[in-house]
Amino acid sequence: MRPFTYERADSPAAAAAAVERRPGAKFIAGGTNLLDLMKLEIETPAHLIDVNGLKLDTVEATPDGGLRIGALVRNTALAADQRVRRDYGVLSRALLAGASGQLRNKATTAGNLLQRTRCPYFYDTNQPCNKRQPGSGCAAIGGYSRQLAVVGSSDACIATHPSDMAVAMRALDATVETVRADGTTRTIPIAEFHRLPGDTPHIETALLPGELITAVTLPKPVGGTHVYRKVRDRASYAFALVSVAAVVQRDGGGRVALGGVAHKPWRVEAAEAEMPRGAKVVTAGLLADAKPTHDNAFKLTLVERTLASVLAEAKGQGERKAETP
C-alpha cells in the first residue's frame, strides 16, 4: 500500500472539487473493494476523499412514481427497503445474492456500481493486465478464464463486471445522477454508464475525472414477476458464473439482463422481444456476438438453461399471483 492523505468532504460538489484539485485522488465510501486493491497496490491513490458524511443515504419517492436511491445507501438497507421489495423485487434479490452480510452492511449503492473486476490476473501484479497497467497486455487471454467474459470482450481485455446489483438496475432502466466540481449535474442512463473494454479497459465508466455519483434513480415500477437467479459453484459468497435478472409480464414479454458474461451488465433490448418464444431465441439474441474462450464456452449453454428456468419460474409465479383473489 502506498502512503496517502485523507480528508472528509462536506458537500458533493466540494468532494468533486477536492478530487479535481488532487491528481490521483479517489473517493472512498464503504471501502470494501478499494482498500483491498490499495493493499495489493492495484489502486494507488495519493489522496482519499471520504464521502460518507454527504448525507446521500436516503431512499425517496420521485414525483413520477419512481425511487431515488442516495449514493451512500448501504446495500443491506436498500435490499430491505419496503418499496424496493414490493416494486423492484429483482433489485432486492440481486443485492442479497451478492457478497456477505458484513460486506453489504458497508457497501454503498454508488460503490457497488464502481466495483472493479475480479479477474484473477487483475489481482496479480506480477502479471500483465491492460486494465491495471494500460498497454502491458492481457494474461487472462489464453490463461485461466473460466469466470471471464464471453461477450463484448476485446483483444485487450476479457474481464467481467462483478456486480449483482447493477444487473438488476440495468433491467430496471435505472439512471445514474452525478455532480461535478463546478456544481453541474447530469444523469447517465445505466446502459451508458459502464463501458465495454475496447482498447481502453482501464476506463470502465462514463464518469469524468472528479465526477461524483449522488444517486441512482429507478423509473416508476413496471410490475411483472421479478426474478434474480445467480449461478455459482458454492451456495453463497461467490461471484456469479452467470446471473439472470428478469422482469416477466403476464403475456410472457419483459426484460432480461445478464451478469457474469461481460464487462458490463448485459442487456440487448432487441432480444427481449422474443421472450414469449422462449429462452433459446432470446439467448441467441443476447449472445449473438459471443466470443467465449475454451474455459468459459459453457456459459453460453448455462445462460440459455438458466434463462429457461427463470422464465418457467416467472410463469409459475405469475400464474399463482393471478389465481390469488
Binding site: 484473477p120 496479480d124 459453484d233 459468497y237
Partner: peptide
C-alpha cells in the same frame, strides 16, 4: 496457481 485468495479459491460456506 491463479486463484490465490479466498475469493478465488472457494471452500464450502455454511450454506453449503
Amino acid at each position: 496457481f491463479v486463484n490465490h485468495d479466498l475469493a478465488g479459491y472457494e471452500v464450502p460456506v455454511h450454506a453449503d
